[in-house]
Design a protein around this nucleic acid. Sequence first.
DNA 1: GCTATTGTTGCAAATAATGCAATAGTGTTT
DNA 2: AAACACTATTGCATTATTTGCAACAATAGC
Lengths: 308, 308
Amino acid sequence: MNRLESLESFVAVVESGQFTIAADRLGIGKSVISRRVSELEEHLGALLLHRTTRTLSLTDAGREFYPRAVQVLEDLDEAEQSVSRSQQDLSGRLRLAAPLSFGLFHLSNALNGFSNLHPRVVLDIDLNDSEVDLVQEGIDLALRIGDLDNSTMVARPLAPINFVLCASPEYLQRMGTPHSAEDLAGHRGLCYSNLPEPQKWPFIDPTGRALTIRIPLQMQANNGQLLLDAASAGQGICLSPTFIAYQAILDGRLQPILTDYHIPPVTAYAVYPNRRFIPQRVRALADYLRQQFGDHPYWDDGLAHVIS
Amino acid sequence: MNRLESLESFVAVVESGQFTIAADRLGIGKSVISRRVSELEEHLGALLLHRTTRTLSLTDAGREFYPRAVQVLEDLDEAEQSVSRSQQDLSGRLRLAAPLSFGLFHLSNALNGFSNLHPRVVLDIDLNDSEVDLVQEGIDLALRIGDLDNSTMVARPLAPINFVLCASPEYLQRMGTPHSAEDLAGHRGLCYSNLPEPQKWPFIDPTGRALTIRIPLQMQANNGQLLLDAASAGQGICLSPTFIAYQAILDGRLQPILTDYHIPPVTAYAVYPNRRFIPQRVRALADYLRQQFGDHPYWDDGLAHVIS
DNA sequence: GCTATTGTTGCAAATAATGCAATAGTGTTT
DNA sequence: AAACACTATTGCATTATTTGCAACAATAGC
């Protein structure tokens, strides 16, 4: 028995849900699939699949075995690739996690570029603002903005994340333009709720003094895009990352305010588990993203005067 | 070509250093080994072994490929075992790291017991007082005493580590027995140099007050056993873990002092990388060690009055 | 109860793996 | 320097395994 081919067959069956489709996918007869899975089961001494002629389902053993089988196959491919002649030509699956807004605004394009560079790399993207456990979820690489907690993860800086305070021209005309941070106390705050203290905004004033202002809450959301849209509609003042706000500012839909104040930037990182063997495609993507964004990301290009 | 058998052959050759021995080990002809390795090389498009008829050495590609090949084979065995009928019967290699003294004093016996329970598990033990990188070194499980730094590691408490202050009866007769922590200032300290501040010893005095005493340095070493021997020989006073000192105390070679003071205990942990699939043998060993030591380890049995 | 479709099984043909023996190459010894 | 001892490789006949086709059995939907 060929253990590896049995594994492949089993995985193909699980993923396709049918022996027949799995056989087509592997380009062999369905009888071969049938026999390989049977042999594998016999070898293990455990049934992997409950099968009637019309329905197929995993047994407990199969559910346990499947992800491990996938992992073994991927690791083997990975190992072979690492020394293969066609080392340039990366392939395999790459599971990527990123925050929702950043993913939609900037990762999307970058990933398309990467995908063109390495067409045989299959990207599996999970946009999610809540932090998932990278090892448990089998994520190869995550894009994280701001502080990092897990020290055994490898973190590579990808880009600075700058912030601007902005509101619509119409709002500013109606409500008055604030000229000091303290003026914000009389304005309407559009606050990002995924922060520990959404209403407290940090500043460095023009003289270099750090201060934190509590702004009245007008609207709160866990999505920066929505808050920005609210700001555009004149709902209030928004403390937005430039990677979300830049377009609206360049368009004139939003106007930066208090630009003589400095808002402490944070950093976007590529984070990946410190495995024994880091897949080359993970390194490649981290490199590529670093190159796409870098210390002066394109979304800050027209905003030099704003982010000081 | 059977990729897996090629892998096995390659690994066997690397580990035995010869095609012939590898063939014997796998119970097949040496011609088969030769062909399998050649096929593997052809498949990869890279030479793995530099071979003349008399000498064998890894190429760069081979050096890169070998550990990954080993990993894949182990992971596959692991996956199969996890659903195998003979699940009880653990097997495979288990790489264990532990501090030197604890390893010699207490791990040794426990591991023999474990090895008898699971004879097919091969233990690969690295006794080392300096902390190594578990993932890079491919360590499955480490025994660590005291504070843990890496938060993504799984840590299971194995035993409390209590401390006693002790000296030889002869020394105490000659130099006088201290009755308060402050008395230690006039004594000779035998200090463990792997601590940030070897000469500073922490106490909780009989009234419950925490204090730190700086003791004059008589001898310093990075090995608790050596310090204990020095104490036995009347060289001075030693702050020793009970797991080292218990025998000498029960024998009367050493006498505990300041037993009305409390010395903050630390904890011994089993630490392992938070991999996606924790090998069963790793869980089993952690369980076994927990069971062998536990909240009231045997080495503290006769010392209840000492460690309060 | 019929039908369409699924997984399994039997079997002959095709394919691949194996071991043996011969071969060629290399470091060591005399 | 030449014979020696031991190594990995290769050719080839034998053996074992795998494959696909077709027939079969089983089931859900009509």
